[in-house]
Design a protein around this nucleic acid. Structure first.
Lengths: 148, 148
DNA sequence: CGCGCAGTCGCCCGTTCGGGTGATTTTGGG
DNA sequence: CCCAAAATCACCCGAACGGGCGACTGCGCG
């Protein structure tokens, strides 16, 4: 930017000098100073337009267009719904494992607790979610956003 | 546009006239014509920049940035996978009802067949899908695109 | 016509689940 | 430190489920 201004000044100076030269050589005795002023006006108008445009060329309008793109939801857990339902962390964990098709026994093994414990948790979470079968729990959990 | 050019001309004319006036009144005897030329240069540079920008303002570069926006899949049934797995229409139907959390008895009532029939179908579809629990069947069916 | 497949149904058996009750231990917050 | 909530485990019972077997009925295709 500084460089451009300097360039502009230099060009302007040279032009003025040139005009002075021309003035003395040809014009001063034949044409009035209106011509001189007019010349300068035209030249610097052109220069002004040119540099003005040049320095502000970067005027870009960014149009953000929303394009529908098919993409899988990244799954953000709905913490509000979780609290609303009142599931504890353990229950939520077990819910997720149920959703993966594991049996109570398998869940127990995975979490190093007895099958009975898993049953207790699952019973409680069924209560809280107001369902009475695991598939229902899974279905409901999915559209509440509790599990992916 | 024509109007603006006329305006520009008019403004320019008035300014020149004004400068001429000033010239005779104050400057001509005290300052050299360099000042006069410089003044005109500055003024018309400014004018040139101003009008240049003003008349070409519409010339903006439009950058279209496409932003991916989430869109739920409308669920298109994956017929290929269905054939691949080899599910019959009835089995597929029952799979869908299982996915809704219905018990075999409820499915039977809904389809006006006995619970045993439902069990037969579900057994067969478990075989074909190579699962052995209904939740697993539901889960697998979902990501094969057999059910919504 | 006959074969095979899909659909229907019944029965049996063992497992899994859901629901209920009760009890102990761990843990986090007032 | 104490209490309530959460987590753990056990036992029981009935319902639901999964697997296996057998059987009968339409229906389409060669």
């Amino acid at each position: 930017m500084v460089k451009q201004v300097a360039l502009y000044g230099a060009v302007g100076g040279v032009l003025i000098a040139l005009l002075k030269f021309i003035e003395y050589k040809y014009f001063v005795h034949e044409y009035s100073s209106e011509i001189y002023g007019g010349l300068i006006a035209v030249i610097f108008t052109v220069l002004g337009i040119y540099f003005g445009l040049r320095w502000t060329r970067a005027k870009e309008v960014v149009v953000i267009r929303e394009v529908p793109v098919r993409m899988d939801a990244p799954f953000v857990m709905n913490a509000d719904k979780l609290k609303e339902v009142g599931l504890t962390a353990r229950e939520h964990e077990i819910l997720a494992l149920i959703a993966q098709g594991l049996s109570n026994r398998e869940i127990g093994e995975k979490l190093f607790v007895s099958e009975n414990t898993v049953k207790t948790h699952s019973s409680r979470l069924f209560e809280k979610m107001q369902v009475n079968r695991r598939v229902q729990a899974v279905q409901k959990a999915k559209d509440l956003g509790l599990i992916p």
